[in-house]
Design a protein around this nucleic acid. Sequence first.
DNA 1: TGTACATCAGTGAACGCGCGTTCACTGATGTAC
DNA 2: TGTACATCAGTGAACGCGCGTTCACTGATGTAC
Lengths: 207, 207
Amino acid sequence: MAGTRTSYHHGDLREALLSACLQLIDTEGLAAVSLRRVAREAGVSPAAPYHHFADRAALLAALTSRGFELLTADLTAARADAPDPRAALTVMGETYLRFAQRHPSYFRLMFRPELTRSDKELPHDPIGDQAFVVLADVVAEGIRAGALPAGDAETLAMGWWSLAHGLASLLLDGQLAKRATMIGTDADTLSHRVMTLFAAALDAPPA
Amino acid sequence: MAGTRTSYHHGDLREALLSACLQLIDTEGLAAVSLRRVAREAGVSPAAPYHHFADRAALLAALTSRGFELLTADLTAARADAPDPRAALTVMGETYLRFAQRHPSYFRLMFRPELTRSDKELPHDPIGDQAFVVLADVVAEGIRAGALPAGDAETLAMGWWSLAHGLASLLLDGQLAKRATMIGTDADTLSHRVMTLFAAALDAPPA
DNA sequence: TGTACATCAGTGAACGCGCGTTCACTGATGTAC
DNA sequence: TGTACATCAGTGAACGCGCGTTCACTGATGTAC
């Protein structure tokens, strides 16, 4: 990143800053993210970012929003590809995990609201809700079709989200890999097994 | 905390530092934790902590270990109180959530290994495993007793951990309360419903 | 097409700050005799 | 019981550092006529 620019104006510094920030989180962790450092990575002076972001928190907030957009898009696509609501549940779970795995920097950011809060920004936008809505719709549809146990759709949706979120969190913390290694398999296989097992249990609800 | 000491020697500075650190996480978040700040809260000079901890990471590592011990103790007690493995699963889930709720500082710390790593410390101790072992034992017992679906006990245990961990994480992020409010209930009720629903599903496994 | 000017998006130096850690030190405590 | 001494657990000043943010500035770009 640094040093590749020749002209005085950058061209698309805002974008460059966002991507430098993401890469920094990936390689050195959230703790390494400072506005100065991000600017340095983007090959720009420490004051330059202030033409694009009110402050440090605003940059992180922008990334958070984008992360939720990406996740929502992934989930929507996964849902569209699944033949029925039952299958959609599993596929969306795998999608959630894949998102965490491919974009750990986004994932870590998205669920740490304290990093994103700024005195200069409005309270948080509701963009994160859209991802949940996709899931809740599938569940409601599945219940209507009789493919999922009747009852509170919100509860089932929240549970499925929690399961996927727990797996994703433990995956990023290395706990999933640790467990998997102990039983002679890998994290991907183990998480797949977990979701299959739980989905099967939900498929055959008690009377 | 600050200014209450009269004698030159503190008495139990190590303990005081640990508890000041916990309180600081609770009130101002992990980002506010610095060795200097913790020392200040404990009413002691910036260099004093170095007689008790090799560095900042060592202090956090000590808290992490203690957190896992507390959690393991809670889970063990919950298990002992439950009449059978089936009930134990639910109760242990609730215990996990309650732990996150009562000790958010511990919880946040325990699952952020990067904060704990130090150049001056040995690689991480396996104390975190004990909590999982308690859970895995219950699951294995349940399967043996026919109260849980036969199959891979590790998979079921990992799934149940993920569910509880996801709920706990989303609880601390405020997402659980947000969802609960939208459907006119509260986070506690919603999480209870989720665990009951999933436990019921697992109780009546498909043939 | 050329020119004057406004605006945009950078620079680089500077501010005050809190940080982790080290150091030489000293007051308090415990122990051997 | 008293004393000499070693050890322990603090102090406080100092180091070098990177941080967020502000400021006056300037080079580049776009627009009106």
